[in-house]
Design a protein around this nucleic acid. Structure first.
Lengths: 213, 213
DNA sequence: CCTACCGATCGGTAGG
DNA sequence: CCTACCGATCGGTAGG
């Protein structure tokens, strides 16, 4: 197998059943995002994936298994990419630049994996508690990534010292996610979008905010 | 009937059927907010309102009629209150203060009518198109209120002239709604919360933003 | 406002 | 991966 073939194989899975499986997940993510979890039926998901309803159970054991994987796909790639950027920037003394690069990477991934991240953001609050519970550890891990970054920035004097880290992280990630949902920027306008978020959020944090977060 | 009685009558409806009707709406709003529209069944709504499922149809013709009224209640009172504040402030030359007061009133109402405004914010994106279409005129009206306020501020030089009004309004209202959903501030901390939003959002708009919105 | 019920549709399964 | 089907539950209705 040539290098070319191996790379292709990683992007477009070779086995047909794998491609169908991915199509089910992608269809499910789109429907979950647009109509919510309960309103999206397995019959609609199957139709979008161009198979019959009963055939979904060849690939997944239950609807819960599908939502679990959609949630996981939506966040894990964001986690890995942002984690990598933060690691590469570990010794940079410019904390504002570090935060900026993390923001940019976060937005990048949100746009790249549209269906899955959007579905995750939009429906998480409305899922049954047992589904949320299974997904929570990954959420906590990602939140911790940002809280560490912001803590270091605060300790270095780059962020106002009277701002609490947890609400700051909530506000920052919330604002970023919200803007992507509203603006749906294309790849070309992503840098502008990231700068805008930086300016609106970070300038407020570091110089403008009069009250404790 | 005394003045006292009349005022009481307006707050707590006298007829029992009116009170049941209100209880249905409030239960529906809570369930819609917490689980989404489709996941909230008429049977659950009825149970929360302490009546039997079939009895809902004594008060409402369909589930659609309930969601219509929940959406309307969630936004109309916000619209009226914010509109009144803007009118009272019409000739104030301090545009930053005008925007600040409008923000404060908006947040005030979001907190005051928690179930209905939260339900409106959270589930609107996932509703069937015909439900959204019926609710859209009121949404547009409220958006126009803010766009007028922001346009005047920009024309007076209080907001950067290279910022487009529509995206600015989307971002501002989106950020305000988001923070209320995340922080759920009590009445006591509302002023602090409003100031924080002012600082984070408005300082970015007027002095910090490098790029066009 | 309740009881008793309807047709439709859901998530899921058996057998191929 | 499909056909044919199950019990459960949904929004909604009839009759009181």
């Amino acid at each position: 197998m040539t290098m070319q073939a191996m790379q292709t194989a990683r992007v477009v899975p070779m086995k047909k059943s794998d491609r169908t499986r991915e199509e089910i997940l992608r269809s499910a993510a789109r429907l979950f995002r647009d109509r919510g979890y309960h309103a999206s039926t397995l019959r609609e998901i199957a139709q979008e994936a161009q198979i019959k309803a009963g055939s979904i159970y060849y690939h997944f054991g239950s609807k819960d298994e599908i939502i679990d994987e959609v949630l996981d796909l939506g966040l894990r790639e964001v986690f890995n990419a942002v984690h990598a950027v933060m690691e590469a920037d570990r010794d940079n003394p410019d904390h504002r630049a570090r935060i900026g690069r993390a923001i940019r990477e976060h937005l990048n991934l949100l746009v790249a994996h549209g269906e899955f991240t959007s579905a995750n953001i939009r429906i998480y609050g409305q899922l049954p508690e047992d589904v949320r519970a299974r997904h929570r550890p990954l959420r906590r891990q990602y939140a911790q990534l940002w809280e560490d970054l912001l803590s270091e920035a605060r300790d270095a004097g780059a962020v106002r010292s009277d701002i609490e880290i947890v609400p700051l992280r909530q506000f920052l990630l919330g604002a970023l996610n919200w803007t992507v949902e509203v603006f749906r920027p294309d790849r070309g306008s992503l840098d502008i979008h990231a700068d805008r978020c930086m300016a609106l959020v970070l300038d407020g944090i570091s110089t403008g905010a009069r009250n404790r977060l």
